[in-house]
Design a protein around this nucleic acid. Structure first.
Lengths: 227, 227
DNA sequence: CGTAGATTATGACCGAAAGTCAGAAACCCG
DNA sequence: CGGGTTTCTGACTTTCGGTCATAATCTACG
């Protein structure tokens, strides 16, 4: 009875092809100006068919976001293979997040686009939402894990609450990378840079920020290894 | 020739009344589901008239955001009246931002809603955009000023670049407060809290984050005043 | 094979909402 | 008062997300 399996496979492929087409359309111009008709044409399907595979335009965007988050989660997972101290792990996680934002700007941008309350409210019920949220949690879980490692090996002060600090690191870095995108991509930047408010170097902005965050994690007494 | 003045005044008042009505509508439900027809009815004007005063729905939202940013800027300005060390000023600025988010959740929410690239791109040309952006810059300018004060009075390490660090603090805190909103307001929170990922106390999340950021600003040697 | 029944695809259609504009109303001034 | 200017109106246009009756395609079974 291989027919059911083949059909299932075909359905999955079509679904993927639709997401591919959607990516092309969403990423070609501004996300918010893309239309379902464009995506249908790009996918060489009728609009109605799109709705057989995805409940709404937002669902489709969520599927794209999910691809991105999966990539990121994969990148972060590798860090733990290396044998490092906890604080070092945290630094690497931060750097990788930044790397991800730079090497997959489209996915990253899609994530930022989805990250607002109105949007979440809209999709809150859907299956896609659940999937994507779980993957997001997975990322925070990596941070918790790295913190706990550091608290044991002494590279991170033991009096922190990793379940709180993980969120703080995640949120703080998010804000920074989001700002980085804003400064990098659009005309907002140019106008701000004209003023002398900041003569900043975009390449050091995020790395330096990570170092700043790490300061708060170091044990109060200097480590035996250092100094 | 007081007629021109009176007309000007009347125009300004009508403009304000429209923003008032828009606030009521935008804040009553989700921002993105509000319609211009609703706002017109709330303002007791025809839709066409709205467009005599504001170029688009987004322009209207920008005007609301501007009110919020003005309030925030006012709050921050007061801090400098108090006579404090630079590091202390920075802490106060951070706390006030958080206070603002809590005491004016609607304005704050509107700001978050606008803070994405697509949105900015859409309104980039308008007069409102320029106004709002300038007020936003004003806020960063306060942070720069506080940092410079601290670098002089010795409460902040002298080897930082205030034009970079100001942006980092602003961006980082932004991310944190944004996350705070997400966790506070909607169902996203409940589901995340069910998992044991974080047993966090929302009231300490942001304050503790501020302390964490401050760690990176302190001079490496302990201050004479402390210790 | 052939055909009934299920599955999948289509695109004309619908409703909602942003934005427009020709004409009406209100107002100003000589 | 009457002509001109400013302000306002709401019906209309357009665009787009989403629907659904119908068509095309495929599967299973006699």
């Amino acid at each position: 009875m291989g027919i059911a399996e083949r059909k299932e496979r075909e359905r999955e492929m079509r679904r993927n092809a639709i997401v591919d087409a959607a990516e092309r359309v969403f990423f070609a111009n501004r996300i918010d100006t893309a239309t379902m008709d464009q995506i249908a044409e790009e996918a060489e399907l009728s609009k109605g068919t799109l709705y057989l595979y995805f409940g709404s335009k937002t669902d489709l965007l969520l599927a794209i976001q999910d691809r991105g988050t999966t990539i990121l989660a994969g990148m972060l997972a590798q860090v733990f293979a290396e044998n490092r101290k906890g604080l070092e792990l945290i630094r690497r996680l931060g750097e990788l997040y930044f790397d991800y934002a730079r090497t997959h700007p489209n996915y990253f941008h899609a994530e930022l686009y989805c990250r607002n309350q109105e949007f979440m409210e809209e999709v809150a019920g859907s299956e896609q939402f659940r999937k994507t949220r779980d993957r997001r949690l997975e990322i925070i879980r990596y941070v918790v894990k790295a913190l706990q490692i550091g608290m044991v090996d002494g590279s991170i002060r033991p009096d922190i609450n990793p379940h709180q600090v993980s969120l703080q690191l995640y949120a703080g870095l998010n804000g920074m990378v989001q700002m980085h995108e804003l400064l990098t991509v659009d005309r907002y930047h140019k106008e701000m840079a004209e003023e002398k408010l900041f003569d900043l170097d975009l390449d050091t902005l995020v790395p330096n920020f990570i170092e700043m965050l790490l300061c708060g994690l170091r044990p109060l007494e200097p480590l035996p290894s250092k100094n």
